[in-house]
Nucleic acid binder design. Structure first.
Lengths: 194, 194
DNA sequence: CTTGCAACAGACCAATCGGTTTGTTAATAT
DNA sequence: ATATTAACAAACCGATTGGTCTGTTGCAAG
């Protein structure tokens, strides 16, 4: 990787972390610059403006992370247990010390959906993609599931609950609260079976 | 109500609306001042700083609205149906034109929980209060419910799903998506019965 | 009549923001 | 050897932010 590419990568990595920690709008370019040890000239050489940097972080960092996080659960031979395992593992991964950052997708959706259309559409695309993946995943065991369920609806319900759990956890800084919601979510998911 | 009290009320009302629309940090004092048709001197006469104004908005505006919104559902003689009615009515109330603002509590929690401890504790108190109310409410018909359920856990689960649904709706600007999650939530709630 | 304070108005200020411009350097192509 | 360019460094800029400071006005008590 060339020096320039390394610089670009470093900017993206630091920006991704900073946006995850403090949100997009609250993240100053000066912070990114300082943490990277570069100048403003360097940043603006690689990105035309703050918004474009944000888009790049979303597409080159958040999307891959997001897919890598959900993929194992969804490609599990038994998606029901795959999801339950995933949610339980998220309980351990959830850090509740100084700050709870939660899911970058959820955060950006809350912060930017009403602020910038470019962000909103990217988030929307990702959410539809996740829903589609989940529908496909559950569809593979459709014969095991109750007859009266709508897969799309169920998929959105699951994601909504997951998102809401992270929000609650942010306010309470209580990992066990997150865990409780996840446990109940597992109860719900397992009850999808006949 | 005296003139001074009227001014204070107007500030609180406008600030509450503006914070609901754009969040606390993105709301400038100049916006509030302009919309109220007052001066900066007036604002700082009634509130020591922006943060204290935010707290006042939370306590004198958001908390009452929040309680008034949930109370009817929870004090319904049949809380299960009370909640279902409530969620269905929220589908109609949800506006999806230019922007989706969602629940002020959820918004502030997402934005401020990791930024200011004063906000976080106020939000936390309110969420615990809601949970307590919901547990009491469901507790009144406990004999009708399945034996293996934990009321607190169920209550947090319900609120989490509701919160997450508003987030999804923000990104998609699709009222029917919100409706789908609410429908599934009703399915879940009704399944709490024996 | 005047003194005093509540209730503002509005100029002012330092800090910070995203963004621009100019300058420098090292490498590469000719 | 020279010209060009990629890849930055850093001073600079206008706009905006929350916050302060110095008035000014109207009513009310003495």
């Amino acid at each position: 990787m060339s020096d320039a590419e390394q610089t670009r990568e470093k900017i993206l990595t630091v920006a991704a972390d900073e946006i995850h920690l403090h949100g997009f709008q609250a993240t100053g370019l000066s912070t990114i610059i300082n943490r990277c040890g570069i100048s403003k000239g360097a940043l603006y050489y690689h990105f035309t403006n703050k918004l474009e940097l944000g888009y790049a972080v979303f597409e080159e960092k958040y999307i891959p992370i997001f897919l890598d996080t959900w993929q194992p659960a969804l490609s599990h031979e038994d998606p029901i247990e795959g999801l339950c395992d995933f949610f339980m593992s998220m309980c351990d991964a959830m850090v509740c010390s100084e700050a709870v950052c939660g899911c970058p997708l959820n955060n950006l959706c809350e912060e930017m959906a009403n602020v910038d259309e470019g962000f909103r559409l990217r988030i929307l695309t990702m959410q539809e993609k996740l829903n589609q993946l989940m529908v496909e995943s559950l569809g593979r065991v459709k014969s095991d599931l109750r007859d009266n369920i709508t897969l799309t609806q169920v998929a959105y319900f699951i994601v909504a609950t997951f998102y809401g759990a992270t929000t609650l956890c942010k306010g309470s800084r209580n990992k066990s609260l997150f865990q409780q919601v996840m446990l109940e979510l597992c109860v719900y998911i397992r009850a999808l079976r006949k």
